[in-house]
Write a protein that binds this DNA or RNA. Structure first.
Lengths: 238, 238
DNA sequence: TCAGTTTTTGACGGTTCGTCAAAGGAAGGT
DNA sequence: ACCTTCCTTTGACGAACCGTCAAAAACTGA
């Protein structure tokens, strides 16, 4: 029956509407400044209808975070296709992450909001699994590049450091820096004006420390950065 | 008058009691699982009395986080007195942080809880200032060691990287790693069994990348770690 | 013992959450 | 045109929690 098909589509569409409206409200007034009643009102539906789609506010944030990870993933995919050496391609991933944080800082925040235990407890395992899967594919791209570097002979990790370990290190450094810069006054003042530059510099130091060739001193990475921006993110206004 | 003096002491003592009880409850049931009524009940005081000390739950968490930073600071101070080269002393700081995270993971969580905007908005500027000051002194110790390294000729940072930048990098890497390991399932699986070892290894790579002497390859840092543990944290059971 | 002062209490109004019985509406049959 | 059945939408409602504040209790010194 064609009708039920149409209805299904309408439902899905409404899910998108709710997310869009909620996103705007969260950005305007913060997580705690938004009530389900207000979301319902802004959607021009009643509360019960909203609850039909999402069993609570936390699930909405989770869905928003999942959308954000999806967009990050597509940025990573573009970056991974950059034509260059393994270390240059990793740099492209770093730039993709930076673009995401810079252009959609609010979505980066949704990602961070997932912390408080309230989230974990109230969100259905299904949705959590969905989210984890998306994150997984982002990490897979990074790990893939690390492995490429190893198999091409650009990178020789110590015996006690796996490709995953290494990916974790880069992730920690990058995420930690953006997170602290966004949440901690003191860290913000330490980082100085341009966190993105700082992160790039530190990531290079980390890669140098593990001997990922070409080393920072032996290559014009400023030029690489420019090429990444021109080729991978031509639409980005900086 | 001696009486008012005694009362002041009693009040202070009660503040400590409230914090201890609240800490236990938060650990048991999470931030959202604890109500002011429950805290009051567990303290065997009425709600009004609790509100006389703390105007809301957020302030309690903030106070707990501040206590945690204080303890971290005293660990840092001990670590900074370690007899050794500048890089070894920095390693002692890293070990101090690791000890804190390992031994009091719940307090590390209080530190992280400060994120949600709800906190910032509801907590008095005074208490926030107090917290910031404590963090400040922790960072001061780290920056001091970096500067020592520079002045002793062990470390020569590039022109565009300040001592603060560098401290920020180490902080990001370390904090990011422990934070992710604690909050993100995927990250936990990447990090492997021993995050502390991973963080040490990555921090060494970062320091190597900036050329902080002695380099990882030219020094027995396993031995240094052992000495740090013996001398600085003899009470720690690992 | 008592009046004055301080501290403690818990009932209360206000807000938000999440539910659910009832109202509303579409599709199909007579 | 009207009715029946089934699905969707609604918003009033109970429960939980917050933070306040007037009244009660406790304490103080005379």
């Amino acid at each position: 029956m064609a009708v039920s098909e149409r209805k299904r589509r309408e439902l899905e569409q409404r899910e998108g509407l709710i997310l869009d409206v909620a996103r705007r409200l969260f950005i305007e007034r913060g997580f705690h400044g938004v009530t389900m009643d207000r979301i319902a009102e802004a959607c021009e539906y009643s509360k019960g209808t909203i609850y039909g789609h999402f069993p609570n506010k936390e699930e909405i944030v989770f869905a928003l975070a999942t959308r954000a990870v999806h967009r990050t993933h597509s940025l990573f995919e573009r970056a991974a296709r950059f034509q260059g050496g393994s270390r240059e391609r990793m740099m492209a991933i770093g730039e993709a992450y930076a673009q995401f944080v810079r252009r959609e800082p609010e979505d980066f925040r949704f990602w961070q909001m997932l912390r408080p235990d309230a989230m974990r407890d109230k969100v259905s395992p299904d949705r959590q699994q969905l989210f984890l899967g998306s994150e997984q594919s982002c990490v897979a791209i990074v790990s893939g590049i690390v492995r490429d570097g190893i198999s091409h002979g650009d990178l020789a990790l110590p015996d006690d450091v796996t490709a995953d370990d290494f990916a974790f290190g880069l992730w920690s450094l990058t995420f930690g820096a953006y997170f602290l810069d966004d949440s901690n006054e003191l860290a913000k003042s330490l980082a100085g004006r341009d966190v993105f530059r700082a992160v790039r510099r530190h990531a290079h130091a980390l890669m140098d420390g593990y001997g990922w060739k070409p080393l920072f001193a032996n290559w014009d990475f400023e030029d690489t950065l420019q090429r990444i921006r021109d080729e991978v993110f031509p639409d980005a206004r900086l």
